[in-house]
């Protein structure tokens, strides 16, 4: 469960995010969309507790990320667009390290099925330097999933993946959502978001333009037309420009 109330983030005089409020329930997949510079990544980073918000409240699984960050972070996982890995740790050692950080005592039991599910079990003793971009992405996901998070944030999760990788990533996201996780993901690939997301939040220049289920947002911008794509909704909602 994610609850955001009047979230704002400023860089000096520049307002990156302004007065943003929304919520996402377990099982929902919320697509965060907007033109370049809309504040999508800043929003995700504030939600994950990576950067402090200037004002507003963010609650993750009932814990305020500002006042109780440790409990909130225990319930979440953040997946950046570029997998951040440690050069000197093998795939298995990454999981070992993350297990100690999150206090996952039985990590060996959990790690093997996870590696097999993500098809990197045969790379368990390889270092990141020997992995392809897709493999690194899978390892980052495995690390994030090891502690069974209730809330997941994906920043451009489909960047750099081949068609097969994109398909598997979508399946994986849907599987976690069906299992009860709350998922927020940002992407520019609107036709792919349309296949995965149950809800959408459109941002422009740091402000919310629209949010709700796909059907609700579609109804808001369809002007009575049927079968309007998310791409068309996006263009209508944002006025077809970044400014």
């Amino acid at each position: 469960m994610i609850e955001v109330l009047a979230l704002a983030k400023r860089y000096g005089d520049f307002p990156a995010v302004t007065d943003l409020s929304f919520s996402a329930r377990p099982g929902e997949v919320l697509g965060l969309v907007g033109p370049n510079g809309a504040g999508k990544t800043t929003t995700l980073r504030c939600l994950a507790g990576i950067i402090p918000a200037t004002s507003g409240t963010v609650r993750i699984a009932g814990h305020d990320i500002a006042t109780d960050p440790v409990a909130a972070k225990r319930a979440l996982a953040f997946f950046p667009d570029e997998p951040r890995l440690f050069d000197y740790l093998t795939v298995r050692q990454h999981l070992n390290f993350v297990a100690r950080i999150y206090g996952v005592a039985d990590h060996e039991v959990l790690a093997q099925p996870l590696l097999e599910e993500l098809e990197i079990a045969d790379k368990a003793d390889e270092l990141p330097g020997a992995l392809s971009r897709g493999m690194k992405q899978k390892l980052a996901i495995a690390c994030g999933l090891l502690h069974s998070p209730q809330v997941m944030f994906f920043d451009e999760p489909l960047t750099g993946l081949d068609p097969l990788g994109i398909r598997r990533m979508k399946d994986s996201i849907l599987k976690r959502a069906r299992a009860g996780a709350t998922i927020v993901l940002s992407s520019h690939l609107l036709h792919l978001l349309e296949e995965v997301c149950s809800h959408v939040l459109i941002l422009k220049k740091g402000r919310k333009i629209a949010d709700g289920s796909l059907a609700e947002v579609s109804a808001q911008f369809s002007n009575g037309e049927a079968d309007v794509s998310l791409e068309e909704i996006f263009i209508r909602a944002t006025g077809g420009s970044e400014n």
Binding site: F86, D87, Y88, L89, T90, Q93, N96, F97, A99, R100, I101, G103, V104, A105, D106, H107, E108, D125, E126, L127, P128, G129, A130
Partner: peptide, 25 residues
Amino acid sequence: GPTKGRKPPFALTGAGRPEIAFLWK
């Protein structure tokens, strides 16, 4: 980056002080 893994300096279990995980890493 390196491409060959190596034996860890000591065994790291899932339970215990998390600071030790950073030392290990």
